[in-house]
Amino acid sequence: MEAVLDNIGLVGWAFAHTVLLFLFSGVLSLLLGTFLVALRVGPVVVLQRAAATYVTVVRNTPLLIILMFFQFAAPKLGVTFNFIDVQWGEVSMTSFFGAAVVSLSLYTSTFVCEALRSGVNSVPLGQAEAARAIGLSFGGVMSQVVLPQAYRASVPPLASVQIALLKNTTVAGVFGVMEALARMRILTNNFTGQKIGIFLAFAIVFVVLVEVLSFLASRLERRWRIA
């Protein structure tokens, strides 16, 4: 524990990396997941199949392999994130951060898609029919009627998906991002005798972060339930 307190600044910046990874990937995964679910439940068969294939392939691929792809294979194909270079305090958002955000977003978006799809399926068919009957286009039906209700129904599974994302950000620690896990490993390597205390301290911060997420999710759920 001492080791953590003595290095509280570094630990704080490490968690800043973790939180930023989560926020960027969280928002992107929600947007992309919504787009994917729109394709999956949409009327165009080719797009339905494309989205379903994408979800199947990416969801069934270990996150580690997706990160390996963007870190080691993609550069050989000319896909790099070297244009990203933002420094904020001790937070360094460079190509590694970019590749991690892209990997985490692509991976998590498939889970978001499936969580939302269960939400879409829970919206009675009559809702979409009524929306079509007043002359809304497919986009209007989805954005005005189906998705808002799907989101409400999907809050619990979406919260689980985002909590998993928060914890999955630790994988970036071995792909060049100085986030919580990377900092923790420096501390455990350095302060061998305090390993258990260091583990506990980092675990507690993660528990707190997850609790904050769960709290927000349950607030949202309650607010939307009245509606």
Partner: peptide, 20 residues
């Protein structure tokens, strides 16, 4: 990631990038 080397290069003013 987590190695003494990474910590020392950080102390030298470089941005540490940790891999497996």
């Amino acid at each position: 990631t987590g190695s003494t080397s990474l910590e020392q290069i950080e102390a030298q003013g470089a941005k540490p990038v940790g891999f497996e």
